[in-house]
Simulated assay, not measured.
Amino acid sequence: MKATKLMTTATVGALLFGMSAAAHSANWRYAHEEFEGDVQDVFATAFKEYIEENSDHTLQVYRFGELGESDDIMEQTQAGILQFVNQSPGFTGALIPEAQIFFVPYLLPTDEETVIEFFNTSVAINEMFPELYAEQGLELLKMYPEGEMIVTLDEPFTTPEELRGKNIRIMTNPLLSATYQAFGASPTPLPWGEVYGGLQTGILQGQENPIFWIESGGLYEVSPHLVYTGHGWFTTAMMANQNFFDGLSEDEQQLVRDASEHAYEIIIDHISGLAEESLAKIQEASDEVTVTRLTEEQIEAFRARAPQVEEEFIEMTGERGRELIEQFHADLEAVRADD
């Protein structure tokens, strides 16, 4: 497991030093949730390079653990300590309940081409979500997909019944908890820093993540049975502190938007083939790993439980959640109609 350096008082103190007139600072700060070379880091690096090549600003990128866990970096962004943050809806869901829509199982397709077209054209993502984030003091710059979600367990499974009694680690997200309850498991919300140890000691029997993160974090070492359930894609969002963004000149705001678009194009190219490469690395590194790809018939047993999760999402989010679900379905229909 990769070593991580958690946030210290000295680190935060250094960030706070000289924060007056942050909007005009020549050194901007950006934190994300992943390791060096992972998808969010590739996005952040592309964003940084564009900013620095097209302005006098510099950008400092902080990776997982350098400033704490996901909740810590969001708090620092809202406080104006950080100018930019990359955080998945799995953690943002407590702040923006509607963001949990990405954890309604079998809502999104799993084939890469359709997923990317959906993100490019979705009214829900490109028009509705920015308003929801703005209500929390955040300028949503880009949402993007990282990879299909894979479940790892202490033994292979093909039915919901085989998940009964299994403690599955999930992000601290109420709807994700509802998903795994529907699947028959015992969802266990934990921050990322506790996952490897929990799997290693047997406190956890499984977890879910995109395959590149399973490889990067070494999760296959302690949870070697990979199961492709087809239930969704991992999605993340890159955003700015709203006050900081509003304080920028029009030219600087456009610079930030252009850098976000540039990074998005880089990441869409980067994730193409990434899942296959990551799985190959895992299989080369361990002969204990097994791979189970559920058949359509086996998937149907899990998909049949999805409507109750969608209903719970609407109960959590009210009319706005209902409108968002309806728009998601309309956006997906439009993508499929163009195929």
Rank of each mutant, 00 (worst) to 15 (best):
M1G: 05
K2Y: 07
K2E: 07
A3M: 11
A14Y: 09
A14T: 15
A14R: 15
L16H: 12
S20T: 14
A23D: 06
S25P: 01
N27V: 14
W28T: 00
R29V: 02
A31W: 01
H32P: 00
E33Q: 15
F35S: 03
F35L: 14
F35W: 09
D41S: 15
A44N: 02
A44I: 02
T45W: 04
A46V: 11
K48M: 05
E49N: 15
H57S: 06
V61C: 01
F64E: 01
L67Y: 01
G68K: 02
S70L: 05
M74W: 08
M74Y: 06
A79C: 05
I81H: 07
Q83F: 07
Q83C: 02
Q83T: 07
N86I: 06
N86V: 06
Q87C: 13
P97V: 07
Q100E: 13
Q100D: 03
Q100R: 13
F103V: 06
Y106D: 00
L107S: 08
P109S: 13
T110C: 05
T114K: 14
I116R: 10
S122K: 01
V123A: 08
I125K: 00
N126Q: 11
N126D: 02
M128G: 03
P130C: 07
E131W: 07
Q136L: 04
K142R: 15
K142T: 13
M143N: 10
G147A: 09
L153S: 05
D154C: 10
E155Q: 15
P156M: 08
T158I: 11
L163I: 04
L163N: 00
L163A: 03
R164I: 14
K166G: 01
I170Y: 03
T172Y: 09
L175Y: 07
A178I: 03
Y180N: 02
A182Q: 07
G184R: 04
T188Y: 03
W192Q: 09
Y196D: 00
Y196W: 13
L199W: 03
T201M: 07
G206S: 04
E208R: 15
P210F: 10
W213L: 13
S216M: 13
L219M: 12
P224E: 00
L226I: 05
Y228M: 04
T229L: 05
T229Y: 06
G230P: 02
G232D: 08
W233Q: 00
T235P: 03
G247K: 02
E250C: 02
E250P: 06
E252M: 06
I266R: 11
L274S: 02
L274I: 11
A275Y: 04
S278A: 15
L279A: 02
A280W: 10
Q283F: 06
Q283H: 10
A285F: 06
S286C: 12
S286L: 12
E288F: 08
V289T: 10
T292H: 08
Q298P: 13
E300I: 07
A306D: 00
P307F: 11
E310T: 11
E312D: 11
I314C: 05
I314H: 07
E315H: 14
R320L: 12
R322Q: 15
H329G: 02
H329N: 13
L332Q: 03
V335C: 01
R336Q: 13
D339Q: 15
